[in-house]
């Protein structure tokens, strides 16, 4: 018994401290340089990291969703329509986007999650296309292929965040909330259930874990986070169309997650931090974004099976052996 109190992993391992320090430094870069371009990229990193964080929650129960962009789209359209048509404040539109995306995921989750592995990937891929086609088909709501422009900016209690420098702290705050939620889930009993389901579904079920319900919870939380990030994106960029939330965006999130580390807590953040700025900084390479992502993905799968977040551990293990 005396062992049990100290036996669990320490709350903060040295590596975690290094990660946090690195991420905090990276977050401060725009303020050091003062460049508007850097602020923009930093905001996009925050949005991608939130979306990828949502995808990570789903990955923690062993499922890979290719409908993640569609849920971001559901959140985006929910918030935009509420704000533009019903004059709801943006600050309420953002959580409403999360709520609706989560509700849709909850409803379709139960039948969907009966499929596993590649079948789940395929059905979610089809769902993402279905979302795009439906939205194109109802232009009175979605704006059709020309989309909706002039979306109101985010405003907090009457103060409109009109420039990059003022959006960025709010983006950081939202990202911190999302990551905080991820940390809570991961360290709590729910995270333990997620891990059990991911590692061995049959054994989890026969150890008394309701695996179908557990997967639905993960899918709902993850998709709600996607909805939130989509709503944030819509009010930040000011323009959305069904094409914004196409299949390619889903693939980008998957690549960010896998590059960062599929099962690592900091994986989504690291992946978004590495991949969002990459095409932007390689001047004139923006149109080659998917080529760059593809090459990075292949390299990661070949050399870093645990993703970038697993790199220190991989290095220390090699060092230990040698």
């Amino acid at each position: 018994m005396s062992m049990s109190a100290t036996s669990s992993a320490p709350a903060f391992q040295p590596m975690t401290v290094v990660w946090i320090a690195g991420i905090v430094l990276a977050a401060l870069i725009p303020w050091f340089t003062g460049s508007v371009f850097h602020f923009h990229i930093a905001i996009m990193v925050c949005i991608s990291a939130m979306a990828t964080g949502g995808l990570a929650v789903i990955a923690w129960v062993g499922q890979l969703s290719l409908a993640h962009a569609a849920f971001a789209g559901i959140g985006a359209y929910t918030s935009v329509l509420l704000v533009t048509r019903l004059d709801v404040p943006v600050l309420l539109g953002l959580p409403a986007g999360a709520l609706v995306a989560g509700a849709v995921a909850f409803i379709i989750g139960a039948p969907l999650l009966r499929l596993r592995g590649v079948y789940f990937v395929l059905i979610t891929f089809a769902l993402n296309e279905l979302f795009r086609l439906i939205m194109l088909d109802i232009p009175e709501f979605s704006g059709g292929s020309s989309g909706i422009a002039g979306i109101p900016k985010i405003s907090l209690f009457g103060v409109t965040l009109s420039n990059y420098q003022s959006v960025y702290p709010f983006a950081l705050f939202c990202l911190a909330l999302v990551m905080g939620l991820l940390v809570l889930i991961r360290r709590g009993q729910l995270g333990r259930r997620f891990a059990a389901v991911e590692e061995n579904l049959a054994l989890a079920e026969s150890s008394g874990i309701p695996t179908a319900k557990t997967q639905t919870i993960a899918f709902t939380i993850g998709s709600a986070i996607a909805g939130f990030s989509g709503a944030f994106l819509a009010h930040y960029v000011g323009f959305i169309s069904p094409e914004t939330f196409g299949f390619q965006l889903s693939v980008s999130y998957v690549i960010m997650l896998v590059t960062g580390g599929r099962l690592a807590l900091w994986g989504p953040l690291v992946g978004a931090l590495f991949l969002t700025p990459l095409p932007e900084f390689l001047r004139g390479a923006v149109e080659y974004q998917h080529v760059i992502y593809g090459v990075v993905l292949i390299a990661v799968l070949r050399f870093l099976p645990r993703g970038l977040a697993g790199l220190p551990r991989q290095l220390s293990r090699k060092g230990g052996r040698g």
């Binding site: 809570l184 889930i185 709590g188 009993q189 729910l190 333990r192 059990a196 989890a204 150890s207 874990i209």
Partner: peptide, 17 residues
């Protein structure tokens, strides 16, 4: 993971401790 079956928790307690 097996033992926790006999100590069920609500969703809130499972996330927020």
């Amino acid at each position: 993971r097996g033992a926790l079956l006999r100590h069920p928790l609500g969703l809130g307690a499972m996330v927020f401790g």
